[in-house]
Design a protein around this nucleic acid. Sequence first.
DNA 1: TTTGTATTAAACCAATCAGTTATCAACTAA
DNA 2: TTAGTTGATAACTGATTGGTTTAATACAAA
Lengths: 111, 111
Amino acid sequence: MHTDPLSNVLSALADPTRRGMLARLAQGEASVTELAEPYDMSMAAISKHLKVLEKAGLVEQGREAQYRPRKLNPEPLKEVDTWLAEYRQLWEARFDRLDHYLRHLQGKSDG
Amino acid sequence: MHTDPLSNVLSALADPTRRGMLARLAQGEASVTELAEPYDMSMAAISKHLKVLEKAGLVEQGREAQYRPRKLNPEPLKEVDTWLAEYRQLWEARFDRLDHYLRHLQGKSDG
DNA sequence: TTTGTATTAAACCAATCAGTTATCAACTAA
DNA sequence: TTAGTTGATAACTGATTGGTTTAATACAAA
């Protein structure tokens, strides 16, 4: 029962097939059959994966004449990014410490 | 059956309770009881959530005398970040277009 | 040794998930 | 109209999830 959007997006992303579809859609619009092509999976399964991505807001239906190609909507990824941003400094901190350590070593050799 | 680490991390993050725990651990080490405190949930449930985070590599057991306080390991978030990086330009592109549009408007008012 | 505190494990339950097959709908082409 | 293609839906299955309660474990304090 994911009611919050961020959980929804993250769990949509937590599947290699769905991430693969997003990667494909990052190249440009694609039909469902095109999206299905790389996977050894029934069309029904593909359809379900797409629905998960659509519910998360990551994929939309374009309207091209009579066809309805899917297209990527990167918007919800922003939320993931801003969530991640609060932790970014934490792993960068380690680098900073290393950086300081290296400066320290350099300082030592200087004097 | 998530075998790939990225899916593992993402699905670990796809839960508000677990993200809350990470937020708490970002402040510093904490015992399981401390981590459980904000949630109306059995200790066993908390323990399970922690196990999910540990399996994803996001949380580790420290060893402080007789206690085993948990601590955050931000490492796996890097993978999420690098995955996200390939899409970052996609949502920034929209901003760029807006930016260009605004420049365009400004240019108009200038000439 | 007994008691209390902190944490995990086991067994269970209802809901969700990821896949299947089979059916259906819509639209294209003959 | 009759096929053929594209895609969605329904019903089912087995595995996983997120929670429960009830023990079990480990250790500290008395």
